[in-house]
Write a protein that binds this DNA or RNA. Structure first.
Lengths: 257, 257
DNA sequence: ACAAAAGTGTTACTTTTACACCCATGA
DNA sequence: TCATGGGTGTAAAAGTAACACTTTTGT
């Protein structure tokens, strides 16, 4: 399907397929080279960067839609997506936003066309293992790339706000949920885990106190060491104890009341 | 406006006024007699209990809609509502749900009528001071009452699930946010605050340790005592230090990393 | 042999827990 | 006067913060 065919189908049939006025957007975090990354798409028809997003089929649960949209737009499969906020302000609504670009492509639609209506979007976020992702484009997407969280380009509509909210949520979760599985390779070192936390929080932590605290959570298993080929002393490798990890996820980490 | 007129207007004009397929629902918590309460409506046309909810005008921010809906249905004004989750599963969708009741009223609508479509709903919750609320009904509502959280009746659609999620969220928030303002009278005693926490968490806390911890947050001001007319020793009265309270809200209470 | 990274440990301090005791009040 | 609820305190345990020292490795 060519670009214009794809857009054409969406414009013609979209209102029959999808729930009107509702969309989903995904904030996909990855970790690489000591940097927290986010996956962004450059939309062909809009010529702008934005979060992977899409619409919800009329008979499709919203959570499934998020999953599907992500798969369609990036090739990513079976990712654990978590809903974090729904964005329903009017500032989201720029009636001319899509229209400008459609016109540029020589496409004209009526002013009450569903694509030009106001949309409320449900935000989802996920943490994924960077190395396992091979971002891929589709007919509507020109580029699909990881961006350093501190260097994201200008984003369409309110996507920057959505991204910020996702990051804020992630930092909160760090306080009462184990994080790292899905974000690190199967086996990783303590310094790597430390670096992950420091990167997400954007601050230095004492490596010794960090190690003690994280080990006390009881969600890690230390393996036979190595991490060969590295300069200086070889660090131990760890992996998550999935059972304990899951339990910590449901129960929460630090007590409170 | 009579019941049927109100319903009639909604059926005729609703699709012109509101965003299709989207609604808001409010979980309003109150505290009274040592019980955590939730405000429920009995819908005239459905003859069932449910959360106060409604639709979003096409040019209205979702947060404002929640506010308005609450005002319309309960008379409650200027309540701090917090969005906590959006419910977009298919289990929400019972096509016959409204239709049955419309038929009962002798109203017939086409099967593709907007009211019969699937809806995604944004959940909001609030904590309010019980005594300041005088629940009031409107044309669509037969009753508006506080229910003990442990004794809620059977609710329409997935409202029980929404309520449970709100409660779960509230309990979480307790761990990193100050709670009590809006939920207690202007002046209150330490035992009352304790009881509030115990009620929300549904467990006993040590009153002495509780007092020390909560005072250390620095969000309370102790007033000249009294709380007269009470049996036994008269407890001190406290009130929230609004400045500190607000700051604690934004910064969060317990450290984490 | 040495710089840099990683492992381990120690001490002071704070917070949490689990208690005991005294005081004020209405019945 | 006494039972009950409320104010205050204290000692032990657990957790956190701020450190120093040793070990390993590639150059």
């Amino acid at each position: 399907m060519t670009k214009n065919e794809a857009i054409g189908a969406l414009i013609e049939e979209g209102q029959n397929w999808f729930l009107p006025s509702l969309s989903v957007d995904c904030v996909i975090f990855g970790f690489h080279d000591g940097e927290l990354k986010v996956l962004l798409l450059k939309h062909r028809h809009l010529n702008m960067w934005g979060l992977p997003g899409g619409f919800v089929y009329k008979d499709e649960p919203a959570d499934v839609a998020a999953q599907r949209v992500l798969q369609e737009r990036t090739g990513l499969q079976e990712i654990f997506l978590q809903q974090f906020h729904t964005f329903g302000d009017m500032e989201r609504y720029d009636k001319e936003f899509h229209n400008r670009d459609l016109k540029k492509d020589g496409i004209t639609v009526q002013s009450d066309h569903w694509l030009l209506q106001r949309f409320v979007t449900i935000g989802y976020y996920a943490l994924v293992e960077f190395s396992k992702v091979s971002p891929s484009e589709d007919t509507l997407t020109e580029k699909c790339l990881w961006w350093d969280i501190r260097k994201v380009p200008s984003l369409m509509l309110d996507h920057k706000k959505i991204l910020d909210k996702a990051l804020q949520t992630l930092r909160m979760q760090l306080n009462y949920q184990p994080i790292g599985y899905n974000l690190l390779p199967e086996k990783f070192t303590m310094p790597e885990l430390l670096k992950l936390y420091e990167t997400i929080l954007d601050k230095k932590l004492d490596r010794r106190n960090f190690q003690r605290k994280i080990l006390n959570y009881g969600i890690l298993r230390r393996l036979k060491e190595i991490k060969k080929g590295v300069a200086h002393k070889a660090p131990y490798l760890y992996s998550f104890d999935l059972n304990r990890y899951q339990e910590a996820l449901s129960v929460g980490l630090q007590g409170g009341w």
